[in-house]
Simulated scan of single mutants.
Amino acid sequence: MNKIGIASNHLIHPNPRFDTNFIDYIQIDYVNGIKHADGLPFVLPLGDPKDAEAYIENVDGLLLSGGQGVTPAVYGEEPLKEVAETDIYRDQFEIALVQAAVKAHKPVLGICRGIQILNVALGGTLYQDIYKQAGAYLKHNQYPTSWEIPTHHITTDRNSWLNQLLGDRFLVNSFHHQGIHQLGKQLKSVATSDDKVVEAVESADGNVIGVEFHPEMMAEAHPEFQKIFDYFVNKARN
Results as ranks from 00 to 15, higher is better:
Gly123Cys: 09
Leu97Arg: 08
Glu77His: 09
Ser160Pro: 10
Gln164Val: 08
Leu64His: 03
Phe232Thr: 11
Gly67Phe: 01
Gly33Leu: 10
Gly114His: 02
Ser189Met: 07
Ala7Thr: 05
Ala73Glu: 15
His36Ser: 11
Ile111Gln: 05
Thr156Cys: 05
Ala219Arg: 14
Gly47Gln: 12
Thr20Asn: 14
Ile115Arg: 00
Ile6His: 04
Val120Asp: 12
Pro144Gln: 11
Asn21Trp: 07
Ser189Arg: 11
Gly33Ile: 10
Ser174Asp: 01
Gln68Pro: 04
Gly179Lys: 01
Gly210His: 04
Gly167Ile: 10
Pro223Trp: 07
Phe229His: 13
Glu78Ile: 09
Ser8Thr: 14
Gly206Pro: 06
Asp157Gly: 02
Gly179Asp: 02
Lys3Gly: 02
Asp38Pro: 00
Pro150Asp: 12
Phe213Lys: 00
Tyr127Phe: 15
Asp19Pro: 00
Tyr25Ile: 07
Lys50Val: 09
Leu187Arg: 12
Gln182Pro: 03
Glu85Asp: 14
Ala37Lys: 02
Tyr75His: 09
Leu64Asp: 02
Trp161Phe: 13
Val208Glu: 05
Met1His: 15
Pro79Ala: 12
Leu171Ile: 02
Glu224Tyr: 03
Arg113Thr: 01
Asn119Ala: 04
Val43Asp: 11
Gly61Glu: 11
Leu162Tyr: 13
Ala52Asp: 08
Leu183Phe: 08
Ala121Phe: 13
Glu224Pro: 00
Ile154Val: 15
Gln186Ser: 13
Leu183Thr: 08
Tyr127Cys: 00
Ile130Ala: 00
Leu166Gln: 10
Gly61Val: 09
Ile180Asp: 07
Asp29Asn: 14
Gln178Tyr: 00
Thr86Glu: 04
Thr71Gly: 01
Ala37His: 02
Thr156Glu: 03
Ala7Ile: 05
Pro16Met: 11
Ser160Gly: 11
Gly135Ser: 11
Tyr131Val: 08
Asp51Ile: 05
Thr151Val: 14
Val211Leu: 05
Gln133Lys: 03
His176Ser: 05
Val197Asn: 00
Tyr55Asn: 08
Phe229Gly: 12
Gly61Arg: 10
Ala100Arg: 09
Phe22Tyr: 14
Val98Phe: 07
Thr155Glu: 13
Gly67Val: 06
Val172Pro: 03
Glu53Cys: 05
Pro215Ser: 06
Asn119Met: 05
Glu202Leu: 09
Thr192Pro: 01
Trp161Val: 14
Asp91Lys: 11
Tyr137Val: 12
Trp161Arg: 13
Tyr89Arg: 13
Val172His: 05
Ala236Arg: 02
His177Val: 06
Ile180Lys: 06
Leu46Ile: 15
Gly210Val: 02
Pro41Ile: 10
